[in-house]
Simulated assay, not measured.
Amino acid sequence: MMGNEIVLQIQDLTKRYPNGRGIENINLNIYKGDIFGFLGPNGAGKTTAMKIITGLIHPDCGDVKIFGVSVTEEYEKAISVVGSIIEIAESYPYLTAYENLRQIGRFSPKVDDHRINEVLEITGMKKFKDEKPKKFSLGMKQRLGLAAAILNYPKLVILDEPLNGLDVEGMIDIRNLIKHMSENEETAFFISSHLIHDIELMCNRIGVIYNGKMLNVETTENILQNYATLENYFVSEVERNGRI
C-alpha cells in the first residue's frame, strides 16, 4: 500500500517562541499513501510544526519540502498539492455548504460541480449541501472542512486534530474515508492528535513529539507487536526520554 516516493520531507525544523515553547530539530519523511500520526500532548509542538508545513508561519531554521519543492522558497508550487485543516475548519457562515466548496474550488481547474457533489457525498454532507454552516454542529463543520481539504485531489492532506467534536459514528466515517483515500488514491495523510486510541486505529506510522522534540518514529505494526497498546508505548517513550 505504501509507495517509496517521499511526499513530505521535514529537515532540521526548528521554531522557538519567547516562552520557550516550539519545536526543535525535527526530521521526518512521509511517503505516498502513508497515514502518519503525529502524537503528543497539547503544547508539545504539533500545531507549530503543522503551521510551518502549510506556510502559515516561518521556521527559525530548517525546511519543509513537498515532492522536493521547498515550502519556504516556492510556497505556491509546494502547497498546490496539499489540502489541510489546521486548528478549526473555517467556512463562510452565510454561504451554503455547496457554495462554500464552490468558493474554495473556484481557483482550481480540476474542481467542477461533479467533484463538489462527490466530496459532499464522501464526507456524508450531501444531505446538508443547501444548509449554512452557521447552523452546523462542530462535527458537521469538521466534515465540511474535510470536504474542502480533499476538494482539489490533493496528494498530501494535513489534519490538525481532525476528530475534534465528532461523535463516534463521525469518527468511524472519517477514519474509513482516510483509509480509503490512502489505499485507492495513494493520498498521504499527516494527522496530529492527542487522542491515542484514534491514532492507533487510523495510522500506519506514528511519531511521538514531546516538549518540541521528536522522540521516535515507528510503524504501528511494530509498536503493537512490542506493546499492548499505543498508550503503553507512548508512556514508555516519554519516560525513557526523561520527563522534564
Rank of each mutant, 00 (worst) to 15 (best):
G165M: 03
N222A: 01
K15P: 01
L146A: 14
E218N: 13
L28N: 01
E90F: 01
G43T: 12
V235S: 04
Y75S: 09
I244M: 11
I209R: 00
I116C: 10
L146N: 11
Y94V: 12
G62T: 06
R143K: 11
G139V: 07
S91R: 04
E218S: 06
I85K: 02
T14Q: 05
T96Y: 11
A148P: 08
E90M: 02
M171A: 14
V69P: 02
H194C: 02
F190I: 12
E76M: 06
V82N: 08
N152C: 02
Y92M: 10
G45V: 07
K51D: 02
L138Q: 15
F67G: 01
S192R: 00
D113N: 09
D12E: 05
L95R: 04
E161M: 00
F36C: 00
F234M: 07
K15C: 04
Q142D: 11
D198G: 05
K213H: 14
G45T: 11
G145W: 00
T47K: 06
E74M: 06
I178L: 13
G20M: 06
P18V: 00
G68L: 08
N232D: 15
E73W: 05
R175D: 03
V69S: 09
Y210A: 07
L120K: 03
F128L: 13
Q9F: 11
Y210L: 06
I172R: 15
H194A: 01
K126I: 12
E185Y: 13
S236F: 13
I30D: 08
G170W: 02
N211R: 01
M1Q: 05
P41W: 14
H197R: 15
E186W: 01
P133N: 10
A228K: 15
I6C: 11
E186Y: 10
L151C: 10
P93L: 13
G20Q: 12
N42Y: 12
D63R: 15
P59R: 02
L163I: 03
M181K: 10
G212C: 04
E121M: 13
H194E: 05
D167A: 15
S236G: 11
H197T: 13
E99M: 05
E118M: 12
G68Q: 12
T47Q: 10
R21M: 13
E118R: 10
M140S: 03
H58T: 06
T187F: 03
V157W: 00
G37Q: 01
K51N: 09
E99T: 13
K46P: 07
H58M: 05
T48Y: 01
Y31D: 11
G43D: 12
T220P: 06
L120I: 09
P59E: 00
I172Y: 14
F67W: 00
E90A: 10
L120P: 04
P133D: 05
V82Y: 11
N4F: 08
G55C: 15
S193M: 01
D130V: 15
F107K: 13
G45C: 10
Y233T: 00
E185P: 02
Q225K: 07
I178F: 14
N117V: 03
V157S: 01
M214R: 05
P154I: 04
G207D: 05
K127Y: 15
T123W: 14
R243T: 09
N27R: 09
V238E: 06
A78D: 06
R106L: 09
Y94W: 10
I199M: 07
K110C: 11
E183Y: 13
A97K: 12
